[in-house]
Amino acid sequence: MTPSSQPFPTEPIDSVSLAHRRPAASVIAECLRVQASVPPNTAVQRFFGVSPLGREAEPWYVGALGELEVARRLSALGPEWVVLHSVPVGSGSSDLDHVVIGPAGVFTINTKHHRGQHVWVGAKRILVSGQRTNHLRNAAHEARRTSKLLTSAAHMPVEVTPIVAIVGAKRMTVRERPSEVVVLREAELVRWLRRRAIVLSAEQVGRVAAVAAEPGAWGRMAPGEVVGHDAFERLRANVGRAGRRRVLWRLAVVMTIPLAVFGVWWAAFGSHLAAANP
Rank of each mutant, 00 (worst) to 15 (best):
Leu149Ile: 05
Ala231Asp: 07
Thr173Trp: 13
Gly168His: 09
Gly216Leu: 02
Ala153Gln: 11
Glu142Gly: 03
Thr173Phe: 10
Ser129Trp: 04
Leu193Phe: 13
Gln131Gly: 03
Ala212Asn: 01
Gly228Thr: 02
Ala202Val: 06
Arg171Lys: 06
Leu248Phe: 14
Val247Arg: 09
Gly116Val: 04
Gly216Trp: 00
Glu176Ser: 15
Arg191Phe: 06
Ile198Phe: 03
Ile166Ser: 07
Arg195Ala: 11
Lys112Ile: 14
Val128His: 02
Ala231Pro: 00
Thr133Val: 12
Arg125Pro: 04
Leu150Ile: 14
Leu248Asp: 11
His155Leu: 13
Gln117Gly: 02
Val208Ser: 00
Arg245Gly: 08
Arg175Pro: 03
Val190Asp: 07
Ala231Arg: 03
Pro178Gln: 12
Ala169Ser: 09
Val164Ser: 10
Gly122Thr: 14
Ala231Cys: 03
Gly168Ser: 04
Pro178Tyr: 09
Arg246Gln: 13
Glu142His: 08
Ser201His: 07
Ala213Arg: 01
Glu233Ser: 12
Asp230Met: 05
Arg171Asp: 12
Gly216Pro: 02
Pro215Gln: 01
Arg195Ser: 04
Arg125Asn: 12
Arg194Phe: 11
Arg195Gln: 10
Val181Cys: 11
Val227Thr: 08
Gln204Ala: 06
Trp120Leu: 13
Val164Lys: 06
Val121His: 10
Pro223Cys: 06
Arg236Thr: 08
Leu189Gly: 09
Arg191Ala: 15
Ala210Glu: 02
His114Lys: 11
His113Ile: 01
Val160Tyr: 12
Arg132Asp: 15
Met156Glu: 10
Arg245Ala: 09
Leu136Cys: 11
Asn134Ile: 06
Val208Met: 00
Thr161Cys: 09
Ile163Ser: 12
Asn138Gln: 13
Gly168Phe: 08
Arg250Tyr: 15
Ser201Thr: 14
Met221Val: 04
Val182Met: 11
Arg236Asn: 13
Ser147Cys: 09
Arg236Phe: 10
Arg244Asn: 05
